[in-house]
Design a protein around this nucleic acid. Structure first.
Lengths: 232, 232
DNA sequence: CGAAATGTTGACTATATTCAAGGCAAGTGG
DNA sequence: CCACTTGCCTTGAATATAGTCAACATTTCG
């Protein structure tokens, strides 16, 4: 797949040797509980998931969405409690690594170690983007931004996203929780943009009807296309 | 200093060999411009700074605050434009590395490479925390959270923070931009908490007057004490 | 000393939240 | 097969939190 770098056989072997097993979860299942100790490392092979945090009264913030190729669990140190939960949005397959694989990767392959750093930094930059949205964009702008970013990420994983759209497995509650909005306001804003002909969500698929207008709304720099990335 | 891990002589040497020079900036100076290409890597040795992003109409979001020991610039790939700016809050000393040091660190010391990954992941978790605040906490709660977190971080770098307070070089505009609030609302909320006796800011120093009440307000789990960390 | 940056406060407004009610589609059990 | 529940989407009305505007005080700094 064009999104991912080609890797040396030795690197692939290394990763294979650290891999424990595959894990299949159905939609809406928890992969990591908030506060869980010593959660393993994962990569997401297929499907969608998200990382989140909650306050004690139940308010939830989605930190980012996870798509194929995302690496999960670098944040917590060994022996630490997970600072965030991870839950699936669709049926999803994860590749499970034991906790100390992070160290093994660094020890046995500087290249792969570097890749892990890069992946981690890249994920941070996604959270940075969301923080800018949630802190400084209006509801309309936030939604425009989210649609563009998710569309681009999902489109990088498939062929003809323009015509067939991309999967959009989020409920409006997920959108609200990702953008720091209430469910009701999210619904109204989503409807407004759809009525203006900017996008459509039909049967769980997202279609971009006016990317330019959405981009203007979101004040998006650059093409927003995800960079080519390493795969662990 | 108790906050930082002890390192092997070989590791210290490696870092020294990659170091280009020291750099002194006065307060309010830009270290990295948003969009700047091929910015070097830095560590912050002394002083305070912050990372931020702006929208084209000037709205600004502060992503996080940087204190002594923080590593700067891992996010951008070689040849990439910086996705965020960095600016000093106080006079500050930075240690400058050339751009490819990141790779050299990984190549020449798996341990230090691992540390860089850890540091990057840790910084992400700070942004995660802020995103939770900005997305789901009220203005009062956000401010309580920010005060606690900055206090703990600053206190870890000095002796008797309880009595003498910690430096607090932020203007109210910085607080507003970090929390996604307007300047006026930030001012009013800050005054409200101060009148309730939760904290005081006097001559650029922050004093915690009722940490428990602040913690309750912020819905803070754990002790919020920053973990022991590697130094690069 | 004067200018510029920062902090403070009140009045007004707007964006977004909460509350409430209802619709639709899918799944479940009798 | 049909009533019933459940989850998700939709909409209007009332409310609240936070934003904007404006004016002035205070501090900092050249």
């Amino acid at each position: 797949m064009a999104l991912f770098q080609a890797h040396e056989p030795a690197e692939l072997e290394l990763v294979q040797s650290l891999k424990r097993r595959d894990m299949l979860l159905s939609a809406g299942q928890a992969l990591i509980q908030e506060g869980q100790v010593d959660a393993p490392l994962y990569t997401l092979h297929r499907g969608w998931a998200f990382r989140f945090k909650t306050l004690s009264d139940g308010r939830r913030q989605i930190l980012n969405f996870l798509l194929a190729g995302d690496f999960i669990g670098v944040q917590q140190k060994m022996g630490d409690a997970a600072a965030h939960g991870v839950e699936t949005l669709t049926e999803a397959v994860f590749c499970v690594f034991q906790r100390d694989s992070l160290w093994e990767i660094h020890r046995r392959s500087p290249t792969m170690g570097f890749n892990v750093t890069w992946l981690t930094a890249h994920e941070e930059s996604l959270v940075d983007d969301t923080l800018l949205s949630v802190g400084r964009r209006s509801a309309e702008e936030r939604i425009a931004m989210l649609l563009i970013l998710l569309f681009k990420r999902a489109a990088a994983l498939q062929e003809d996203a323009g015509a067939k759209g991309v999967p959009f497995p989020l409920t409006q509650q997920h959108v609200a929780d990702a953008l720091g909005l209430s469910l009701v306001h999210t619904n109204k804003t989503l409807r407004k943009l759809e009525k203006r002909g900017l996008h459509q969500i039909i049967e769980g698929r997202l279609f971009m009807r006016d990317v330019k207008a959405l981009g203007r709304l979101a004040d998006l720099y650059g093409d927003g296309r995800p960079p080519v990335r390493p795969l662990v």
